[in-house]
Design a protein around this nucleic acid. Structure first.
Length: 409
RNA sequence: GUGAGAUUAGCUCAGCUGGUUAGAGCACUGGUUUGUGGUGCCGGGGGUCGCGGGUUCGAAUCCCGUAUCUCACCCCA
């Protein structure tokens, strides 16, 4: 007697994508791809596995992603590697490795694929999840930042997804560090009153203290310096321009001075698209400018902007277009006709989808089965048709039917 | 990583305070006076009650552990 041992199931936080989910998934990829193409972006595929130091240097060691969420291991060649936790670092690495930073000019890429973070899963947060993202290199103009936002907006609108857009500026290397110091100083002064999390955050990511959920912390932070009020001239003017472009193009936004991207490489424009319909993991797209990242990774200084969307979080929000019925269902009404049906189907499949029922059955049952298959036509051969070398076809949508010679099918 | 809830058929869920062969709807499948469907009628298959222990004469039901999911925190797409 065979005793079944432990059934093997997928790893925690790692899902299979099939059937209807797969339809939605590919529908998303297709529309996002189409729209990215309209903005002049080209596909790039980078490896899932990269050297660990790539992420340490780009995403930043202070971030949770690098600090505790990476699938990191030593491979057989003694290399310290990890599964990519996000997409930007790999694309930037490729950009530099292919010497496009030296080539100059503008390079725009989009990508999609699996990302890995060792987190505690919940709705909209998986260990293996999928992102669609774009990265634009070589454009300093804030118009490109706006283009990113417009692209996300186009994609979401096409998919019928409602959103709120939050906007902030993180400043640049001129204005950010002084502000950061000012804020740290401010928070340290009221350190006795703040929560444990905030004490930790002062060292890791000070700006995060500003959106601490703790009410008593919030009271203390009322008078805290705001990043937006400490921008340098150029950052401020860019931010104003960005707002104007969005206004001109009828894209609504809200300013969120506490919006901090979790990754260290962002500067200036930071934005996040949020949905109120999917639970607490509500960020569906996020991005911004990262002008310094290319040089952090030893490339020639190159301005860059990008964004990433979390596909799983979008999945249930996507409004799928009504799928048109298409293709054929074929069946035989007598056993002797089955082989003929198979032969005809083989030819038909050069151009169309054909689903065959190998069992002979009466017309009523064939029609039922054809309905279930969701096809447009039901084509059946019985003894009558066999005799005349014809085939009976019914259009299941407009209910018209006729019998034509097999040659013409 | 911390705290809380859930886990019964492929899916959505009933199953009261422990008591004989664990139910429903949908789905699947077969038949339906024998060539016209998606919405008729009748039947059928399918359950280690998440997994592992314990208490009990007896556990889907009570207790402990564990896995997974969900929610919140944290963080992020």
């Amino acid at each position: 007697m065979i005793r079944r041992k432990l059934m093997i199931s997928s790893l925690r936080g790692m899902n299979d994508i099939l059937s209807e989910d797969y339809e939605r998934f590919t529908y998303f990829i297709n529309t996002a791809t189409k729209i990215a193409g309209r903005y002049g972006f080209h596909f790039i595929e980078t490896p899932l596995l990269e050297e660990t130091s790539l992420f340490k240097r780009s995403v930043g060691e202070s971030s949770d992603i690098v600090g505790k969420e990476m699938y990191q291991f030593i491979d057989k060649g003694d290399n310290d590697v990890c599964l990519r936790p996000e997409g930007t670092a790999g694309v930037v690495r490729a950009f530099i490795q292919k010497k496009l930073d030296r080539a100059g000019g503008i390079h725009r890429f989009f990508y999609h694929g699996a990302m890995f973070r060792y987190e505690r899963p919940q709705k909209g947060r998986l260990r293996q999840f999928h992102q669609f993202g774009v990265e634009s290199f070589g454009v300093e103009s804030v118009y490109e930042d706006a283009a990113m936002i417009m692209m996300v907006s186009d994609i979401l609108e096409t998919l019928g997804i409602g959103y709120r857009l939050q906007l902030n500026s993180l400043g640049c290397k001129e204005c950010m560090p002084p502000y950061r110091n000012k804020l740290v100083k401010f928070v340290k002064e009221c350190e006795e009153g703040i929560c444990e999390d905030c004490i930790r955050r002062v060292d890791t990511n000070p700006i995060r203290v500003l959106d601490c959920k703790n009410g008593s912390c919030q009271e203390l932070y009322v008078g805290a310096p705001k990043l937006l009020h400490h921008l340098c001239e150029s950052c401020e003017s860019d931010f104003n321009t960005l707002k104007k472009i969005l206004n001109d193009n009828k894209i609504e936004y809200e300013i969120n001075t506490n919006l901090v991207r979790g990754l260290d490489y962002y500067s200036k424009t930071a934005f996040e698209f949020v949905s109120d319909d999917i639970g607490s993991q509500s960020a569906i797209a996020g991005g911004g400018r990262y002008d310094r990242l290319v040089e952090f990774l030893d490339g020639r200084p190159t301005p860059a902007v990008g964004f990433a969307m979390g596909i799983e979080r979008l999945m249930e929000l996507i409004k799928m277009p009504q799928a048109a019925k298409k293709g054929y269902y074929m069946g035989a009404m007598d056993d002797e006709c089955v082989d003929t049906v198979v032969q005809i189907a083989h030819k038909k499949r050069k151009t169309d989808t054909v689903i065959i029922d190998y069992k002979s059955k009466n017309l009523k049952n064939h029609l039922k089965a054809a309905d279930k298959a969701g096809v447009k036509y039901c084509a059946v051969i019985g003894s009558n048709e066999m005799k005349d070398k014809t085939i009976w076809i019914k259009n299941l949508e407009d209910k018209t039917e006729n019998t034509i010679p097999i040659m013409e099918f």
